[in-house]
């Protein structure tokens, strides 16, 4: 088992390295940040001085070497626009994004599994069909458009919830969290629901098809033949089996929630790192883009690692194979 973990960690570093190379090459090789940063009427001398101060006059591989060495120390360069360390800028915004993603995933899981179970147990009932129709719709609705509709209905028409911003936050160990204030919750609800919708549809589908598949299995029939209550057959025998793929997917999809929060954050003006990324892309603020990408890639690699370990913990068959390996 430790060997297995070690190998996975090495693999993860590999992915990180390749991604850093790709990201750097792409971001630094194409486009010219000087055009954006320096007054177009500046002299060639001014341009050269600005380029030198930003290190842009060096050959690419020198730039990358410096970039990598600095990255190891957590220094991904200063933002061209804000003039402060790019990584710090991103990390500052991380809690807001994580908060949004976690609440969205909780909504998706806590609603999705029961709804999916119901639809799987009663596929021909009108409720089961309605749940499935809802999930097909949830798949078809583009996230950004749902965001607009939420704002239109709940913020503009009904005036129940605020349409933008994060509201008041409370500090825990220097990290601002919305979840601790009522106002924070009011601000969080719409964006979280928006972000959750797609995952909710996914979890409903997954749970439903898993349930239907499990119900056909002999072990379910055997469990019923043992005289177990429906609650136990569904709640233990079926659920424990379908939970394995669901946990895997939930884990892997958490990363995509962070990526998709770019959309939700830009609609609801949620001050997370997705919005920062978007601004940085349009302003050609490369260090911030690079810092975002590397941070997200690191998060992904970590999530993948955790999911692998969780999977092994949940499925006795994998656990055994892992122990043998």
């Amino acid at each position: 088992m430790p060997l297995f973990i070690l190998r996975r960690i090495l693999q993860s570093f590999n992915v990180l390295f390749v991604m850093s190379l790709l990201v750097f090459a792409g971001v630094y090789a194409i486009g010219n940040p000087l055009d954006l940063l320096v007054d177009p009427n500046a002299t060639a001398d001014d341009m050269a001085r600005a380029a030198a101060s930003l290190g842009l006059d060096q050959p690419l591989w020198v730039q990358y070497g410096r970039f990598l060495a600095n990255a190891m120390r957590g220094d991904l360069g200063n933002s061209f626009i804000h003039g402060v360390p790019a990584l710090g800028l991103i990390v500052e915004r991380l809690p807001a994004t994580l908060e949004l993603a976690v609440v969205a995933m909780l909504i998706a899981v806590l609603l999705g599994i029961p709804l999916g179970l119901w639809a799987g147990l009663k596929p021909d009932s009108w409720t089961g069909r309605a749940i499935m129709a809802g999930s097909i719709l949830g798949f078809s609705l583009p996230t950004f458009w749902v965001g607009l509709m939420l704002i239109m209905v709940f913020a503009v028409q009904l005036g129940w919830l605020p349409a933008s911003g994060r509201g008041s936050t409370a500090d825990v160990l220097g990290v601002s969290i919305s979840l601790l204030t009522a106002d924070g919750w009011r601000h969080l609800l719409l964006p979280a629901a928006n972000l959750a919708l797609f995952k909710l549809s996914l979890i409903i589908r997954l749970t439903r098809s898993g349930t239907r598949e499990a119900l056909l299995q002999d072990y379910v029939k055997f469990a019923r033949a043992k005289g177990l209550s429906n609650a136990r057959v569904v709640g233990v025998h079926v659920l424990k089996n379908i939970l394995i793929p669901i946990v895997t997917v939930v884990g892997l999809e958490f990363g995509s929630l962070i990526a998709f929060s770019v959309v939700t954050e830009s609609i609801f003006a949620w001050p997370g790192m997705g919005k920062l990324l978007l601004d940085s892309i349009t302003q050609l603020d490369r260090p911030v883009v690079v810092a975002y990408l590397l941070l997200v890639v690191t998060l992904y690699v970590l999530i993948n690692l955790v999911v692998d370990l969780l999977y092994a913990a949940l499925d006795p068959r994998v656990r055994l194979a892992g122990a043998r390996a």
Binding site: V23, G26, V27, I30, G31, L252, G255, S256, A259, F260, V262, V263, L277, I281, V289, L293, V296, V297, Y300, N304
Partner: peptide, 14 residues
Amino acid sequence: SFPSILVAMILLAL
């Protein structure tokens, strides 16, 4: 393992 929106965003940023 990365969502397509992220891949597309990176490329468009480039």
